[in-house]
Each structure stands twice: as structure tokens, then as C-alpha cells.
Write a protein that binds this DNA or RNA. Structure first.
Lengths: 349, 349
DNA sequence: CTGAAAGCGCTTACAG
DNA sequence: CTGAAAGCGCTTACAG
């Protein structure tokens, strides 16, 4: 149905409030109040009907920028994210977008590296007042900028990362994740269990490492220093870390790897060494994705509720935008072991 | 350095044009014109200096919404994208974001499924006038919405997809990509080469299939109908498609797979059948990512210039926004074969 | 029950 | 060489 345009609107045939008012034969004020469901308005039912009908017929939507200018509300949330290519981050974006959309908000993307180096992105988003709040999903760095941000008063929440006294955060139970992985390996009979962890400045990596150590301690098993090795980069890092572990005099029979990408690299290292997985070595990765199912062997992983984390984060942000106070939270949904073929009993030496 | 705020700005301590004017002791008009480098302005150098100094000291940035309202220019580009989790799409987003940022534009993300089903995202972006243009990177569906879009007059360009007579598109040379893969296999001595293609409604898949057929024809080789099989979904689809190929009476000795994910599934299928890759079967995937390096065996792929494609797309969009006309283009950078261990000579039967 | 008016923070003819 | 004023499209006290 083509809207019976009463006036040739000026911008690309877009309908303005005034067009609706004219169509309905009333002033713009009541149109605005009716359409925004102002509860204090008392209006004759037939007038309201006429207004609503006109808005519908013209397919009217308020201009976001005009509205934002007046209300000081952009209805936009910024999502600051590193490494789009990691499926993990895609889950976060998707969760955030979905939840934001539910509240009528739109999502603006900013590359974490650029943003946290206090570059143009920062200025565009904050100084130009393009967003009502920020969900920051970068695992590392940028402390200076974060405190600047805190000072600016713009609501923000950190996802997947905690920075004490800086602002609220939403995280998943990373420690529990590694605990679950370790427990699974213990049940299979492993005792020599190692951990490939992430960079020191990655908060998630630290928490996963903590979970690893505490699960091992709980089982009264020692963890030689050489059994916790850092994988600075993705697949390549996992590969090198695994090579280090396998060249130890007394190599582990099982390894928990802190990310899926690093696990892919670790698996490659083991196979290139001619090891049978899981016959000679069991492997657990972190985060689940379809890929895990199709590796050789299919990789046992720990699935983390990341989309949910992002949704919680957005909810917190929305509360803050409404002026509410909010406290850091850990998503209650537990990590889940996805058992596949890369884990089995240790070799019977 | 803390800006010596002359007035308590009303919104979260943000500096307005009027603050700069007051600080510099002039009216807002010249401030605006000086800061926007209006060439028609003739101003005493010392006044200009005072204004620029004040803006710098106060860390002034014009409010994007006020500016947008006045100029009818949001300085925002919408990126409509499916399946964030595919590394391929991440490349597109990144390319688009980078190029947009260069021109002072910000990127808004919209989920393709939701958008193209003419849902809320569509209304928010178009009707609320939140974007100056749209880069649409969805490979399939949505014809109705696209023609609606075209009618609306909002500039848009299709990335990775052509729809004749609808709007300009930017693509990479997909046909050439498969040709390169086929040529590589021919050189290795293969004759029985099959193709795992994508869904019929995916434009890229069709073009890759075209390239496959023409390369085979050029080599005077026949392609039995059973040698082109469709993989409806990602890894899982690739797996099933490969199973079909391998259960043929006269199976191929080499397969070109239309996507990286499907190639992962196809590789899994071959290995589960006990085949040696590349001893019994050679495999080429489409699109390159670090993952390919760490599969077993490392996967030979065809790298496509996707980030560049997105950058070109944004450039076209910017031209259209300036009121220019623009024609569809194919990125000139050629696809590149990344040779790894999944391809070798055919088995010597 | 409904409308005229001011103002959000800009830009840009138009005066002077 | 510089400023006052109108207007982008909304919302919201304030009148009537």
C-alpha cells in the first residue's frame, strides 16, 4: 500500500511528524504524545484513532537524530570488540545485538584495538555523543582509557573482564570451566595434566588458570611449573605451547587449552609429533563451535554461555542508562562439557 | 590537561559549540565555519587562532546528532551481514569499518536475517534515518525488500552479490577462484575433479560453480552431473556432500569445495572413510584463514580479497552519498592459491 | 481536550 | 571581518 503522501516530504520521501499531524488534522504536540503513549494525555478516542491511523497509513517513524537531540538519548549502544573473526566474539556481538534490539537500541561496532588506543573511534563515540552506553568486550589493556571513560560519566560495562573499582563487569564462570575440564580428565584416570593458558594480561586466561590450579589442588595433584605454559597467539601459539609440553622429560598425558583456536594448534602439534589423540594424549579445548565436531579427532570442549553474558551485559547497561546502579555479575549458567573423541583414558604405561 | 570549563555544560560535561564561542569571545557562527574550514570565510588570523585554541583546549567535538539533523547526514553506514561467526564475514566487516572510519563514518551492524525479513532493523535503519547508506553483504534472498530499498532512494551497495537492475554491487572474481583451484589440480595430474557447491540462492556459489565448469571445459574434461553436489549447510553440509561423492561408482580424485567451513566437513568425511588426503584424494577449500594451516593435512585454499571488496563497496557508497553515480565493479585483485598439503598427484591406479 | 512555543546543538544564508 | 536569526524534526512544559 502506497502511503497517500499529503506533502512532498523534503528528505527522500521520508514522513515527518508534521505530515502525520496534517493528515490527522491536528497539531504536532498531541501526535507526539499519543504516539509516545504519554499517560498524562487525555484525548477523545476518535482523535486518537485518527492519529494512529494516519501514522500507520504514512508508515511514520520518528527521525532518530531529531529525537535523540531532544531527548539526549541516542538509542544506540556501542560494542567495543577485538578480533571479530573469533567465533567467540561473534557470539558476544550477536547476544548484545539481540538484547539491544529488544529494547529498541541499535548497535554500533568499534574495533577494540583502535578504540582502546584512544583513537578516532573513542572520540567519535564519546565526544560526538553517538552512544548511550558501551559494552566493552576486550580482554586486555587500555586501563588509562578505561579510567578516562569512567570519569566521563558515560555508562559502560566490561564483558568477559573485571577491573576492580573501575566499573561493573559481566563474566562467565571461567574458573569453573577449567575445573570441569580437569575433573573430566581426572575421571578418565589422568594424573599428569597440563594447561595451555593465554596471555597474562587477558583476564579470562588468568581465571581459567586459577580454576585449573584449584581443581588440581583439590585432587591433591601437583602442578609442575613447566605444566602451565603460555600461548601468546591463537593457533600458532597453541602449537608452540604444545611443542614445549611434549618435549618435557615427563610430558603430560592430558592438556586443557584455554581457547578453541589454541586447541586447534595444540592438536596439530601433537599429531605432527606422531602422537595418537586420545590414545597418547587427551585434549580439551575452551569454547564450543561447529568446527570442534569436525576436527580429527573431534575435540572435547567446554561450552561457555557467552551470548547470555552479552545479553546480561546489555541489560546492565540499560539499567545504568535509566540512571540505576548496577553491580558486577557472573552469569549463573554453568559451563558445560561437550564430550567428544579427543579425550580418553591415559596410555597404560 | 583538564579543560577550563567556562560553563557547566548540561549533558555529562560535554562541550558545545557555544562553550567554544564563549571561550574564544566570539559568536557561534564563525566558530562553526572556522572549525568546518569553510573556504568562504575571511577572518583575522588571530581570531581564527583564538577559536582553534579554544576548541582544542575544551576538547570540542560537534554533537553528531545535532549535526546530523541539520545536515541530513548521519555519518553512519549500515552494514547488513549474515553469520558473524564466519571468518569470511569478519573480514568484510573489518574492511568496511576501516574504510568508513577513514572517511569519518561510523558503522552500524544489522543482522542480515532480521534485516532482510523486513523486521525492526529495517525500520530502525531506514525509517528512523539512522544511516546514510547501506552495505549489504548477504549472499541470498530478500529480493522484495531490496526493491523496496531501491525505491526508498537510500544509497546501498551489494557486496559479494549481484542483482541485475537493482543496484550497484561489488564482487570478487569468484569464477576465477575456482578456475585457479581446478588448474592447480589439473597440473597435479587430476582428471576426475568434482565440486562441492553452495546453495542455489547464493550468488557466490553460482559463480564459483560457473568457474569450475568453464575450467573443466577448457581442459576438455567432462563433468558428470553427479560430480557437482550441493552442500546446504556449513561443515555438516560439506561432510554429507563428500559422502555422496565418495560413494559414487567412480569417485573423484580431487574436490574443490566452495567454502572453508564446508571444506572442513568434507575433509572430515574423507578421513572418516579412511582415505588418505592427499594420497587418495586432493582437496581445495575456498577462503583462507589461519585455521587452514592447522588442519590435518593443512588445507590448500583459494584466498579471496574480501577486505578489499568491502573497502571498494564503502567507497562506492560514499560516492553515491555525495550524489554521484556508480557502477557495479569486480575487485581486480586476483584470487590467490595458497598451496598446502591437502593437494597432491592423483593415486596411480 | 488540544495547540503554540521554546529549545535540543548544530549550520548557513543574510545583514551589517 | 563577524553576529543574529532561522530551521533541521522532534518533545514537553505551558496556555487556553
Amino acid at each position: 500500500m502506497v502511503p497517500s503522501r499529503t506533502s512532498r516530504a523534503k528528505t527522500r520521501g521520508v514522513v515527518r511528524l508534521a505530515d502525520v499531524a496534517r493528515e490527522a488534522g491536528v497539531g504536532t504536540s498531541i501526535v507526539s504524545r499519543v504516539l509516545n503513549r504519554d499517560p498524562t494525555v487525555s484525548i477523545r478516542p476518535e482523535t486518537r484513532e485518527r492519529i494512529e491511523e494516519a501514522a500507520r497509513a504514512l508508515n511514520y517513524r520518528p527521525n532518530a537524530f531529531a529525537r535523540g537531540l531532544k531527548l539526549r538519548r541516542t538509542m544506540t549502544l556501542g560494542v567495543v570488540i577485538p578480533h571479530l573473526a573469533y567465533p567467540v566474539n561473534a557470539e558476544i556481538i550477536k547476544g548484545a545485538e539481540r538484547r539491544a534490539a529488544l529494547a529498541g537500541f541499535v548497535t554500533l561496532l568499534a574495533d577494540a584495538d583502535e578504540f582502546l588506543q584512544s583513537g578516532e573511534a573513542y572520540r567519535r563515540l564519546l565526544l560526538e555523543q553517538r552512544v548511550d552506553g558501551l559494552l566493552i568486550a576486550s580482554a586486555s589493556t587500555g586501563e588509562t582509557l578505561l579510567s578516562e571513560l569512567a570519569e566521563s560519566g558515560l555508562p559502560f560495562v566490561l564483558a568477559n573482564r573485571r577491573v576492580p573499582h573501575l566499573g561493573p563487569s559481566v563474566t562467565v564462570d571461567d574458573a569453573k570451566g577449567t575445573e570441569i575440564a580437569v575433573r573430566h580428565l581426572l575421571e578418565l584416570g589422568h594424573r599428569r595434566i597440563a594447561h595451555i593458558t593465554g596471555p597474562r594480561d587477558a583476564d579470562t586466561a588468568r581465571r581459567r588458570a586459577t580454576g585449573f590450579r584449584s581443581a588440581m589442588r583439590f585432587a591433591r595433584l601437583g602442578v609442575p611449573a613447566s605444566y602451565v605454559v603460555e600461548a601468546p597467539y591463537e593457533e600458532a601459539g597453541g602449537l608452540r605451547a604444545m611443542e614445549r609440553l611434549l618435549s618435557l622429560a615427563n610430558p603430560p598425558t592430558a592438556v586443557v587449552v584455554w581457547s578453541l583456536a589454541a586447541a586447534v594448534g595444540a592438536l596439530a602439534a601433537a599429531k605432527r609429533r606422531g602422537l595418537d589423540v586420545p590414545g597418547d594424549l587427551s585434549l580439551v579445548g575452551f569454547h564450543d563451535a561447529p568446527l570442534a565436531e569436525y576436527l580429527d579427532p573431534p575435540l572435547t570442549t567446554v561450552r561457555m554461555p557467552l551470548a547470555e553474558m552479552a545479553e546480561r551485559g546489555v541489560e546492565m547497561l540499560l539499567q545504568m542508562i535509566e540512571g540505576g546502579r548496577v553491580r558486577s555479575q557472573v552469569v549463573q549458567t554453568l559451563p558445560e562439557l561437550v564430550r567428544r573423541a579427543s579425550t580418553g583414558p591415559p596410555p597404560s604405561t
